[in-house]
Design a protein around this nucleic acid. Structure first.
Lengths: 239, 239
DNA sequence: TCCAAATACTGGTCAGACCACTTGACCACC
DNA sequence: GGTGGTCAAGTGGTCTGACCAGTATTTGGA
């Protein structure tokens, strides 16, 4: 049997999630005022500090605006929220949001080649070593989920090699969106992580410090799965 | 005289910033344990709820890990933090971090053409209208800062046209990093926002639904300022 | 009619208490 | 020499209730 840690939901987390859902799912319209902290605490049956903690986290995510003395209002999250909201948008009521998934695939295909380009220009010998290790792990693992993790490790090192704070943080955010759904997605992405020769080509291009080739090889690696998944999503959206 | 709102720093914000600085500036090493909430409250001279609120926000940003019953430990923020940390990394002790600025310029140059491509494929007639309005604002404004805002508005609409959640959220995060420093950066970016014909070309390519042309025009618009600023940064880093 | 003071909200902060959990030490048992 | 039980100390989790500090609204004069 597969044991996993029991999850004890904390009170402020629960409150946060409820308000977040209200905002993201549109039950709370932008500009609308939330009930006061005291009222929320009463309605939810929790203490005011718990409500307050949740609201402050909502404010940090730029989903609501808290004004001392005034009421807390809902912001237009599409215009204000940061990339860290992505995990919550990708899975909605336990289901994948297809439009969001498509968007992630597009962004991945657009950005990864740029990152590989930078890595080819800037990476050192240690980067190549780590890429080799990652590819070895990819070859060794046969479980689809484990291979996904190995592939993530490969890109992790490529991102390191690119020496770009922005791409690093983007990768972290995208990874945070991808990993919770990894189990479900592993089978869909299996075709990609099986293309070991394609990974080798990316590695070789980076090792040769050939930026253009690194870009091309990366696109070649990602394009097939991206295209087939996006067209599959398109078909699903039709139906 | 130019009056500006007095900033009333809230207690939990202040605590949050102090701990954040400790983590980001490396005073607190990854894996290190923070003092207990009670101890922090005592040392900082604030109440425990205030400390707690700050720590929970740190945890939400994936900068620390809070374990019930155990101690709160510092995470390796470069590997875990999301794109929303960017504003804090860009300005450090009131100074621009040049490596971060370079990274932003690179990412912008890499991503904007992709976004313009998507906008050309998906944008509707209303998008063109809004782009025209934005360009008109760009032509009307002569104050450098106002022109920067107008340019941001232009790209805002392009991102809308791309109809991509991921790029939308990325734009929001990047904008959140850029806007606080906008006053300081306006003069550096002035050359770019003066290229009105280049903006017109991007708009025309999107209106013509010519994806390849939109990509090229966008790159042509962004490349000059990007290159000159990056080389300027390079020179500064040498010195 | 208009403006300013009073008032009734809102969020901001604090103190102190108690619960729940983890850790580590100690100890009895096999 | 392990195994598991017990306990105490320290940690985060949560609540209550109070008061401070702003904002919005009402109200009562001028």
């Amino acid at each position: 049997m597969a044991l996993k840690p029991v999850s004890r939901r904390l009170v402020p987390d629960e409150v946060f999630d409820q308000i977040l859902s209200g905002v993201v799912d549109g039950e709370l319209a932008p500009g609308e005022s939330l009930p006061s902290e005291r009222r929320l605490a009463e309605v939810l049956g929790v203490s005011r500090p718990a409500v307050r903690e949740a609201l402050q986290r909502m404010a940090q995510a730029r989903l609501v605006e808290v004004r001392h003395g005034g009421s807390t209002t809902v912001r237009e999250f599409r215009r204000s929220a940061g990339l860290d909201l992505l995990p919550r948008l990708l899975v909605r009521d336990g289901e994948l949001d297809l439009a969001v998934a498509r968007s992630i695939l597009e962004a991945r295909l657009a950005i990864a080649p740029e990152v590989a380009t930078l890595a080819a220009q800037r990476g050192g010998a240690d980067l190549i070593e780590r890429l080799d290790e990652a590819i070895a792990a990819l070859e060794a693992d046969h479980d689809p989920v484990a291979r996904q993790r190995a592939a993530l490790g490969f890109w992790d090192h490529v991102v390191d090699g690119a020496d770009s704070v922005v791409f690093r943080l983007m990768f972290n955010s995208l990874r945070a969106a991808y990993e919770p759904a990894l189990d479900a997605l592993a089978v869909l992405m299996e075709a990609e992580v099986s293309q070991l020769d394609a990974y080798h080509k990316v590695r070789a291009a980076i090792a040769a410090r050939d930026a253009a080739l690194a870009r091309a090889a990366t696109e070649q690696l990602l394009r097939p799965a991206t295209n087939s998944l996006i067209s599959a999503i398109h078909d699903l959206e039709e139906a």
